[in-house]
């Protein structure tokens, strides 16, 4: 399940960044991938749709959100948590 979440999130991020999945690593930051604030909001929308979850993210102040976007790994971890909550 977890592997599945990770792969799906990376696929969504790769699509947003117009990159191959193989070019997106867990340590990549959104900035490195060339995803700006609008691209981030779009990625989160795609993630919400893919997993049928609500991501607590306020674009006004991403650092204040409960959702850590500092790297692909933190995003995957947060989504895994939200998916687990959803299934609990």
């Amino acid at each position: 399940m977890s592997e599945n979440v990770k792969d799906k999130v990376i696929a969504i991020i790769a699509e947003q960044a117009v990159l191959d999945v193989s070019d997106v690593s867990l340590t990549s930051t959104l900035e490195e991938l060339g995803i700006d604030s609008l691209g981030l909001v779009e990625s989160i929308f795609a993630i919400e749709e893919a997993f049928d979850i609500q991501v607590p993210f306020n674009a006004n102040d991403p650092s204040e959100s409960d959702f850590d976007i500092s790297s692909v790994a933190t995003i995957v971890k947060a989504i895994e948590g939200l998916v687990a909550e959803q299934n609990a």
Binding site: V41, I44, F45, F57, N58, A59, N60, D61, E64
Partner: peptide
């Protein structure tokens, strides 16, 4: 809502704790 720039509680311009 889609843009995620809306506040759920109040409009607080220029205040450090503003949230949209």
């Amino acid at each position: 809502e889609g843009l995620r720039v809306m506040s759920r509680d109040a409009c607080r311009p220029f205040s450090a704790n503003r949230n949209g």
